[in-house]
């Protein structure tokens, strides 16, 4: 993962609550089995007309939001399925930051695991950002993970909080496994004294591959 400390970019406002991961990447694309290339599928059914052309009524297709790298969203963003394809698509589309009042749990973790910063702001502040983004063409925000603040060039400054672990991982570009492998000894010691036994077959089962 690339380290992340600050980002400035154009904002696209997606004015819907409860946006679910089924919408972000519809199931037909999750058959692909890769981690990359989902940017063009992001919000597929909203973004494209039945003939495959961009739907001019969908906000992502407004010329003024072309090249946006900050996604402004509403509450409970990323709800539903655990598919990480949603986070891969957000990243692959070019978004580095999402700003919303709240997120669903699994999507929240998935996004951070892919180096996408999710900023949580109070609903009134998100409202204000929506107003500004819709009013000003080419509206830009700067997001600083060092100082934990969001600013625009018109005196707006919103501080935000994020837990230290996730912040550090983003700043250093570390993934989970990297930081845990060092703890192999502790994990092994835990396994040695853990009360829950490994599964033992006591009756007939029909397995294709089986651990001997």
């Amino acid at each position: 993962m690339k380290p992340f400390s600050e980002h400035a970019g154009t904002v696209v406002p997606l004015d819907r609550i409860d946006v679910d991961t089924d919408q972000m990447v519809p199931k037909q694309f999750i058959l692909r089995g890769t981690r990359d290339g989902y940017g063009r599928d992001l919000f597929h059914d909203w973004r494209y007309l039945p003939n495959g052309d961009p739907d001019p009524d969908f906000v992502f297709n407004f010329p003024r939001y072309k090249g946006a790298s900050i996604l402004l969203a509403r509450s409970n963003f990323g709800c539903g399925s655990s598919r990480e394809h949603a986070a891969w698509a957000v990243r692959d589309y070019g978004f580095q930051v999402v700003i919303a009042p709240s997120y669903a749990d699994i999507f929240y973790t998935n996004a951070f695991n892919n180096g996408v910063l999710l900023v949580t702001l109070p609903a009134e502040q998100v409202d204000e950002l929506f107003r500004r983004a819709e009013k000003t063409e080419g509206y830009e925000l700067s997001v600083d993970l060092e100082t934990l603040s969001i600013t625009d060039n018109r005196q707006l400054r919103f501080p935000f909080t994020i837990d230290e672990y996730r912040r550090n991982r983003l700043l250093k570009g570390l993934d989970d496994i990297g930081s845990m492998i060092e703890h192999d000894k502790e994990i092994a010691a835990f396994e040695g004294s853990h009360a829950i036994p490994a599964p033992i077959v006591t009756g007939p089962v029909d397995m294709k591959v089986s651990t001997s």
């Binding site: 981690r35 986070a87 699994i106 973790t109 998935n110 892919n114 496994i177 845990m180 703890h183």
Partner: peptide, 12 residues
């Protein structure tokens, strides 16, 4: 969990 976490659990 997401796929990155699946990988983490497989590994650790």
């Amino acid at each position: 969990i997401g796929t990155s976490e699946v990988e983490t659990v497989l590994a650790t």
